[in-house]
Computed example of a mutant assay.
Amino acid sequence: MNKVIGFIGAGNMGQAMAGGIVNSNLVSKENIIMADLNEGSLEKAKEKYGIKVTTDNNEAAKSADILVLSVKPNLYPIVIKGIKDKVKEGGIIVTIAAGKALKATEEMFGKRIKIVRVMPNTPALVGEGMAAICPNDLVSKEEVKDVVSIFESFGKAEMVEEKLMDVVTSVSGSSPAYVYMFIEAMADAAVLDGMPRAKAYKFAAQAVLGSAKMVLETGMHPGALKDMVCSPGGTTIEAVATLEEKGLRSAVIKAMRDCTKKSQEMSK
Rank of each mutant, 00 (worst) to 15 (best):
D85Y: 07
K268F: 03
E142Q: 15
D227P: 06
K103S: 12
A205W: 04
A45R: 07
T122A: 12
S263T: 13
K3F: 04
D166M: 09
G82H: 11
T55E: 04
N25E: 04
E142R: 14
E184W: 07
K226P: 02
S170R: 03
K103R: 10
R197D: 06
V118Q: 10
S24R: 09
R249W: 00
A190T: 14
K84L: 08
G247R: 04
K46I: 04
I93V: 15
V27K: 01
G99A: 10
A16K: 07
A35I: 00
I21E: 10
L209V: 11
M119W: 08
A104K: 12
V144H: 12
N38R: 04
A101C: 01
G223V: 14
G110C: 12
P73V: 02
A198V: 12
T218N: 06
G247D: 05
G90Q: 12
A190D: 11
M195D: 09
A251H: 06
E217R: 08
G6T: 03
K254I: 00
E238V: 03
N25V: 00
V22F: 03
I133A: 04
V168P: 07
S231R: 02
K52L: 00
M13S: 00
P222T: 10
A124W: 07
V87I: 15
A104E: 04
F109A: 08
I237Y: 05
M13Q: 08
A104H: 09
G20Q: 00
T236W: 05
D137Y: 14
P222C: 03
E142G: 15
E184I: 13
G82Q: 14
P176M: 07
L102T: 15
A241L: 05
A241T: 09
N121W: 09
Q206H: 02
L102Q: 11
S63I: 11
S170W: 10
A189W: 06
E184G: 05
S41L: 13
G82D: 15
E143V: 12
S174P: 05
G6R: 12
F151H: 09
E238Q: 11
E158M: 15
K44M: 08
G219I: 01
L248T: 00
A205H: 02
F109W: 08
G129W: 01
N2Y: 00
V147I: 02
Y178K: 03
M266E: 12
P77G: 07
M165K: 08
A132W: 05
L209G: 03
A177P: 02
M181V: 14
E59L: 01
S231E: 00
K29H: 05
I92V: 15
I253V: 14
E106K: 14
L243Y: 08
E245A: 09
D193N: 15
L243F: 06
E39H: 02
S175F: 12
E106F: 04
